[in-house]
Design a protein around this nucleic acid. Structure first.
Lengths: 193, 193
DNA sequence: TCCATAGTGGAACGATCGGTCAAGTATAAA
DNA sequence: TTTATACTTGACCGATCGTTCCACTATGGA
């Protein structure tokens, strides 16, 4: 072994995540990252590779940490539909509570990079599919448990909720009033009745 | 008078629109614009100002031309709800038909610039409000004409449709399969029944 | 025909971009 | 204590960014 790092890679990634989340990929400069992560160029390039590789690590962290953690709540046994409603409301409440209205890093990145970055686009598509599939499981369970009417289509509803969530993020970033966003969420959720 | 322009400003703006729509604001360089618009630096700066001013003109053109034109169809007399359904399906069909999946310039710009460009953000918020208000008018008319059930709330539904459209744009840019997007649109429209 | 006007074309600006590199330094193992 | 290893630091790279500026050219009116 040799001289140990003076920073904790995980914490540095987290700092980078905050910057990318706030400013987007292109608008974030290496200078921004160096400042926020509080390390020097050499350390950054040696440890994380170039800007693009760092961003991939950030995306990975965001998906597995931030998002995956919350979505895993949906797969727990118990009443399905109330949990789903709480989840949706919680996500939106969280988005509205952010004073910077940064929205969701996944949606932000889809909009900024998907047309030109096929690899990243593929990753993001998988994440959105994962979200849809999680919604599908909880809806199928709700149907099985008699919480959801028999004529409802879990797959269609799962897709609907995924799309709805993305739309809400756009509206939040556009600066829509909180009460309008909440009303829209309730309107969307009414489709589960 | 003096020497006339060798280009048509309106056509040049249209070319710039295509580039910004495809690549976004930051990722579009003046070089890209000069090439696409087929004019030289001097002419561009003299006629349209700097990059930001040009972008504002592009946004304006997109809103009044592209979007305003289509939304104006909703205010015509006659059956309201079928027209609204056709409109929504048409918008989504159009988005799916674009091989580049560029989505909507307004949504793209909201996601890229809203947090940092307050002036542009304000403009875009107005445009989204205009969309919501147009949906509201057609829904209120539908209710008045007995096409929409009495217990439906036109304002809530208008907001819902606006949000839904934005979400669909995200999914289209994310590369979602056409049939999934269409199914989601039908699920969303079923809320009008 | 001549001139004022304005468009054209391209060189050049400073700033910033992402990325590289080598010299210096601190650490753990031998 | 020595040595191999790898982190730190900051100067520096070429490329590209948006923008300015000026010599040149073409046009319509006097």
């Amino acid at each position: 072994m040799s001289r140990p790092k003076e920073f904790i890679p995980d914490e540095a990634i987290e700092k980078a995540l905050q910057v990318f989340w706030h400013k987007g990929y292109e608008a974030t400069s290496m200078e921004d990252l160096l400042t926020a992560m509080d390390l020097n160029r050499g350390s950054l390039y040696d440890t994380f590779g170039d800007k693009r590789q760092l961003f991939l690590k950030v995306i990975d962290r965001y998906c597995h940490g931030f998002v995956g953690e919350k979505f895993s709540l949906l797969d727990q046994p118990g009443p399905a539909l109330p949990t789903l409603r709480l989840f949706i409301r919680g996500m939106i409440e969280g988005g509205l509570a952010d004073p910077q209205r940064r929205g969701c890093l996944i949606a932000n990145t889809v909009m900024e990079l998907s047309p030109h970055e096929k690899e990243i686009a593929g990753t993001l598509r998988q994440v959105l599919k994962m979200a849809e599939d999680t919604f599908f499981r909880v809806l199928a369970r709700a149907k099985q448990q008699g919480e959801l009417k028999k004529d409802k289509d879990p797959r269609a509803l799962a897709r609907f909720l995924t799309t709805m969530l993305q739309g809400t993020i756009v509206m939040i970033k556009a600066g829509a009033p909180a009460d309008a966003v909440n009303q829209t969420a309730e309107t969307a959720l009414s489709i589960l009745d």
